[in-house]
């Protein structure tokens, strides 16, 4: 297990290095012989774009903070951390997954909520089916896909539908948010319920239909330094950066809400 993680981690570093090189950003790697080793951040898949941007911003503060990432579904990350993966910071898409690590005594201090996310209905660009709200999803002949109840977005979607008093039978219960967006952008499904941030990341082929506050669910994202952290001080500095006004501005630019 450990070897597996290390291999993944090194390939991740290679991938991040490639991306950095491809983007032509000033690579933080080997700028000085005494360069500090990077903070390893395990972050929920929905944070991918925002945290990559966060990482390049953190590389420019003084002193520079180097980061490397492992993005996956929160339950997967929790399992990896429980199996002893080398990790400094964990950012979860929901409280229950962070709580598993708190209960396991793996968290330093107490987690802090750094961002919130909300649900939206995702439809094809131009909204060809004229969907205006959750109640429209019951329309016969409409193909609706949701996340499976086991994953956070599916649990939140079920809560929102219940608040709206709407009962639907989805065509499919996808394993993650990206799969729901994929089915809608390919035209296989007419609508789905996903996070606002995913609609933003979904590009020009999809658009979001707002869900009113009374029916919406707010997902809180907690972050914490792990007890296993080998760079405790730098790890705390990264968490502080995420919570700083600059970090919050970056998250807001990816449609995340404040804590």
């Amino acid at each position: 297990m450990t070897a597996f993680i290390q291999i993944r981690r090194s390939s991740l570093v290679a991938a991040v290095g490639l991306v950095a090189a491809a983007c032509g950003s000033p690579g933080p790697v080997s700028s000085s012989p005494a360069a500090p080793s990077p903070v390893t951040v395990f972050a929920a898949a929905s944070l991918t774009a925002a945290f990559q941007s966060m990482g390049s911003a953190a590389g420019h503060v003084n002193p520079p903070l180097l980061t490397e990432y492992n993005f996956a579904g929160s339950p997967t990350l929790v399992a990896q951390i429980q199996q002893g993966a080398p990790v400094d910071v964990f950012a979860s898409a929901d409280q229950p997954n962070m709580q598993k690590l708190v209960d396991g005594g793996l968290v330093m201090g107490s987690p802090r909520v750094f961002a919130t996310n909300r649900l939206q209905i995702v439809v094809a660009a131009g909204n060809p089916k004229g969907i205006t709200g959750l109640a429209d999803l019951v329309r016969p002949g409409l193909v609706v896909v949701l996340c499976a109840p086991a994953v956070p977005c599916g649990r939140y979607a079920a809560q929102a539908l219940e608040k709206a008093g709407v009962r639907i039978v989805p065509a499919s219960e996808e394993t993650d948010v990206k799969a729901v967006i994929g089915k809608v952008s390919l035209g296989e499904a007419d609508a789905g319920i996903v996070y606002v941030t995913d609609v933003r990341a979904g590009g020009a082929k999809v658009q979001g239909i707002a869900i009113p506050d009374t029916q919406n669910v707010v997902a809180a994202y907690p972050i914490a330094v792990m007890k296993a952290a080998s760079h405790g001080r730098a790890a705390q500095a990264f968490v502080d950066f995420v919570l700083s006004p600059q970090g919050q501005r970056i998250l807001a630019s990816f449609a995340f809400g404040g804590p």
Partner: peptide
């Protein structure tokens, strides 16, 4: 299967798909 047919219990959720989802819960 999960890409083309999706995942719905009794209709397209085969054993491997059920295993994958059960891993999380």
């Amino acid at each position: 299967t999960i890409t083309f047919a999706g995942n719905f219990p009794g209709r397209t959720q085969t054993l491997p798909l059920a295993v994958y989802l059960a891993l999380e819960t």
